[in-house]
Computed example of a mutant assay.
Amino acid sequence: MPTALIADDERLMRDQLKRRLAQVWPELDIIAEAKNGEEAISLTLEHKPDFAFLDIRMPGTTGLEAAQAISQSTHVVFVTAYDQYAVEAFEYGAIDYVLKPADAERLTLTVERLKKRLVSPPNDMQALIAKIAKQVTKKPAYLQWIQASIGQELRLIPVDDVLFFQSDEKYTRVQTKNYEALIRKPVRDLLEELNPDLFWQIHRATLVNSKAIEGVVKDLRGRLLVKVSGLDEKLEVSRSFTHLFKQM
């Protein structure tokens, strides 16, 4: 029976990949899970899995660094949420990849490739991994998914579906067309992780999806208010960010 390790710092992502793999490759035995690259290296040495599914970006030792350490002993599969520019390197190399969240159709293709590799020993791919590492650091990597709470439920929300983020002292509200959710990450941290061309800061505590802006109006006090598509609610624009709407 083929065996595998999954390494991802987000439990939700590990669980989702496990479920998808169970659907498309029920014979695969997930014998270990790691929360970071250091654990992935240690658990690979201990359990010797046939495959290691490694999230590229993890705190501390990254998936790329872990891959350099274990690629001689296990077949490496990279898991990535937003490194689309690295996909080309994977396509032309011997290393495979899975885009987060795992798509059943794409994962099926990956599994077919991995089954063929079971009969051959892992390749030492230090040079190729180093090349991918350079590509990954060339461009900023923007978030594609938000892990947020809706009541007692934990949900993955595509960033493109978010209309705006708005923080208070404790939580940040994640508003979509159909529902709102909460995360603990403040707007100042989200600013570093979101594409600035897509999300505009219009207030110290507010980021709005530029594609969701329906218009801008002034209230009786002369304040600019952003009208968000699909919502009755309007978002205040602070003076520091009025320049964004001079052409509107």
Score class of each variant (00 low, 15 high):
A4N: 04
A4Q: 04
L5M: 06
D9A: 06
E10M: 05
R14Y: 03
R14D: 05
D15V: 01
Q16G: 04
Q16T: 05
R20C: 00
R20T: 06
A22H: 10
A22R: 14
E27F: 05
I31H: 02
A32C: 09
E33A: 08
N36E: 08
N36D: 15
E38C: 03
A40W: 12
A40Q: 10
S42M: 09
S42A: 15
S42D: 08
L45Y: 13
H47C: 00
P49S: 06
A52G: 08
A52M: 04
L54M: 13
D55V: 04
T61P: 00
L64Y: 01
A66F: 00
Q72G: 07
V79C: 15
T80S: 14
A81M: 11
Y82K: 03
Q84M: 11
Q84L: 13
Y85N: 11
Y85A: 13
V87D: 07
F90T: 01
F90P: 05
E91N: 11
E91Q: 13
Y92K: 14
G93M: 10
A94Y: 11
Y97E: 01
V98I: 15
L99T: 06
A102S: 02
R106T: 04
V111N: 03
K116D: 07
R117W: 04
V119S: 15
V119R: 13
V119K: 14
S120L: 13
S120A: 13
P121I: 12
P122H: 07
M125W: 07
M125R: 15
Q126K: 13
A127L: 12
L128F: 11
I129W: 02
I129E: 09
I132R: 07
I132G: 01
K138R: 13
K138H: 07
P140Q: 05
A141M: 00
L143Y: 00
L143T: 02
A148Q: 01
A148S: 08
S149G: 06
I150S: 09
G151L: 13
L156F: 06
I157H: 06
I157V: 13
P158H: 02
V159M: 02
V159Y: 00
D161E: 11
F164K: 00
E169V: 04
K170P: 01
R173P: 02
N178C: 06
A181K: 06
L182W: 12
I183C: 07
P186V: 01
P186H: 06
V187I: 15
L190K: 09
L191E: 15
E192C: 01
E193P: 03
L198C: 08
F199N: 07
W200D: 06
Q201G: 10
A205V: 04
T206M: 08
V208H: 08
V208S: 05
V208M: 10
V208T: 08
N209S: 08
N209Y: 09
N209L: 11
K211V: 00
K211G: 06
E214R: 14
E214D: 12
K218E: 10
L220Q: 11
R221H: 02
G222N: 06
V228A: 06
S229K: 15
S229F: 03
G230D: 07
L231K: 14
D232W: 03
E233Q: 15
E233N: 11
E233S: 09
K234V: 14
E236F: 11
S238N: 10
R239L: 10
R239S: 14
T242Q: 14
H243Q: 12
F245T: 09
K246T: 10
M248D: 03
